[in-house]
Amino acid sequence: MNFPSKLIENAVNEISRLPGIGKKTALRLALHLLKQKESVTEELTLALNALRKDVNYCQSCHNISDAKICSICASGRRDKSIICVVEDIPDVLAIENTAQYNGLYHVLGGVISPIQGIGPDDLKIESLLHRIMSASESEKVEEVILALPATMEGDTTSFFITRRLKEYGVKVSTIARGIPIGGELEYTDEITLGRSILTRVNYSAD
């Protein structure tokens, strides 16, 4: 790709380093910013700099936070007896958007993957165990929900965590895996379909 300006080329190269953005999309974004008022790019720059310098990670659940403890962990309205374990921060946002869960979270920061060189010690598993062990009587953790990817790595991580939680006497559950609403059986993969049958629930016409 030939560029009329070295400045444009540098901007495109930096923008295209973002996930899911190719050189053509990066060029469109760069040209779009170039057409905007200077204040627009200045505000974007300030926001990105603040993101890098000022953002915190919750000391309890490791979610992104503006303070040492995130708003979810600090809320008096959340059910502190339940912790939902997720792979990363986007999973927290996805579950929160359902408005169906009122417990706490724990962000592992990944899943066990020997191929990528990620082991249990690279994740926030020990932090999870410490949360459960050190919880006060009034905030005792009674259930851990494993909301990890339906992959080999996710299953390996779930198995490892379940084994570690045995000594704490905590109930361990996992999110249901089944056919999505509006989904056709013939287009559903065999593993999902098989798990849906095995984890079937009672049907009532009432």
Rank of each mutant, 00 (worst) to 15 (best):
T188Q: 08
D155E: 15
G154P: 07
G183W: 08
S158D: 06
E167T: 07
M152W: 10
K166V: 02
S158Y: 03
R163E: 15
I197S: 06
T156P: 09
L146T: 04
V172R: 04
K140D: 01
Y168V: 01
P180L: 11
A147G: 06
F160L: 10
T157R: 10
F160V: 14
I191A: 11
I197R: 08
T162V: 03
I179S: 01
D189H: 08
P149F: 01
I181E: 10
R177S: 00
G169H: 13
E184C: 12
V141C: 09
S173C: 05
V172H: 10
G169I: 12
L185R: 03
G169K: 12
V172K: 08
K140H: 14
V141R: 07
F160R: 04
G154L: 04
T157L: 03
R163P: 01
T156E: 06
T162L: 04
I161C: 03
G182N: 05
I161S: 00
I191V: 15
G194D: 12
M152F: 13
Y187H: 13
G182L: 10
L193I: 12
K140Q: 15
M152L: 15
A176N: 00
T192C: 02
T192P: 09
A176I: 05
A147H: 06
E143M: 00
G169R: 15
I197Q: 11
V141A: 12
E143S: 02
D189A: 10
T162Q: 04
I181N: 03
L185A: 04
I181L: 15
G194I: 09
E186H: 09
